[in-house]
Design a protein around this nucleic acid. Structure first.
Lengths: 227, 227
DNA sequence: CGTGAACTTGAAAGTTTTCAAAGGGTGTGG
DNA sequence: CCACACCCTTTGAAAACTTTCAAGTTCACG
């Protein structure tokens, strides 16, 4: 469930396009962007149950948002890459948690996102709205994957999706661990590993010696496998 | 992925909080609600690929939104009950389809929903925004279900969720078939049937002779089973 | 009252998980 | 600069859960 507000696609500077007087119409101030802040790998941006005082935009690095069941089972709804917005909530508290997968720089927008939508900054509101809709579409696609695709199809889809979001189309530097991938795709770490090995053996992809870098050798085959 | 715009929960008076002159800022008129229209069970409200000319609000009945894989596997992201909004798209065409599960009355809002958000009707915009956020939260919960819950946990969660959205808390009149339930929960029709039978046998629920009506006998047990 | 669709039930098969153990890489400390 | 740890990843075998295949049964409807 990711808010795909890609900077390259939605490149409006905050409040840049709004008439200067417009904000006078509204009593409540919209969310205030703070300076970009750095987070280390493994850091928690926020945890389930924390007060939802802000939402975030990724400048660099990668963040995962996830939910836990009481016995420890985890579902990662989405990985957020540069340009993505995450942390939008309707209630006063976060119902999921966000952790840094790879050293990241984030911009926090203080205030509830609903205020941004109806509030001061019309341009930010539009960005957020567009991002939410895209996020909904991604969520739908992910539900199809989780509900109806086989393990192999999930891996193929994941690799294809990730490559489309990364700068270099055929070379993927995985920011996340096998465990993260498994928890995103609704599989176990072992299944992920086995299928990656199989795709490598079949010449569809090439997994580097360090295991964190993948080259897509046969994109067409991957598309076939992704269903 | 459902837009839960429950009229009882989102009860802001139309445009009540915005200064009257504000709408003059916007050139484009917002979506125009048409008269409520009736749809028969089985009818397609829209299909994958159709131009996205409107979004809808359920007045009565039930609608399912789903996606298909090329081989026929289907995933139902959500069932939409009275009060819910569905059919919001970012692009010009629908990427999923909507079918009537149970004779329904719908209100169509012509125009793109993004226009409603930035456009003429501030109250509708707020409603849609709130609905989208709730929809995202439901999608997240459903991803957790599809990715990490067992078949029994899925059924228990489904029954509990459904009962919370229906008027009579303990009596569920299922508007959908076993096939629909299976395609929503990422299971097969046989598994759904077996588990419903088992819950009945264990005294947790009571399935009527016609199979479409369920009484929740032991809500606590259901909660335990839903994890 | 007959027909057909929807649902239930049983047995076998299959995919993925679980349990176990070994391999490999990175990082720290000597 | 090398060695020891520790964590991540891979691999194998057995187990488990869910699906698939195949009949029945029931209920709704003509």
């Amino acid at each position: 469930m990711q808010i795909a507000l890609d900077a390259t696609r939605a490149s409006h500077g905050p409040a840049a396009t709004l008439p200067a007087g417009a904000r006078l119409l509204h009593a409540a101030p919209g969310p205030q962007p703070n300076a970009a802040r750095s987070f280390e790998k493994g850091a928690a941006v926020f945890a389930e149950g924390d007060p939802a005082t802000a939402f975030y935009k990724v400048v660099a690095g990668a963040v995962r948002t996830s939910q836990l069941l009481s016995d420890g089972r985890r579902q990662i709804d989405s990985f957020h890459l540069p340009g993505d917005i995450f942390g939008i909530e309707s209630g006063a508290r976060h119902v999921f948690s966000a952790d840094v997968v790879e050293d990241a720089t984030l911009i926090a927008y203080r205030g509830r996102c609903l205020d941004a939508l109806a509030g001061a900054d019309a341009d930010l509101a539009r960005q957020i709205a567009a991002a939410m809709i895209r996020s909904l579409e991604r969520a739908r696609a992910h539900m199809l994957l989780l509900g109806r695709k086989t393990a192999l199809e999930r891996i193929a889809t994941f690799l294809l999706d990730l490559s489309a979001r990364l700068p270099d189309m055929d070379h993927i530097d995985l920011p996340m661990s096998r465990m993260d991938i498994a928890d995103h795709l609704g599989l176990t770490i072992e299944t992920v590993s086995r299928l990656l090995t199989r795709l490598d053996r079949d010449g569809v992809i090439e997994v580097s010696a360090q295991r964190r870098s993948i080259i897509l050798r046969d994109r067409a085959a991957l598309r076939r496998l992704g269903t």
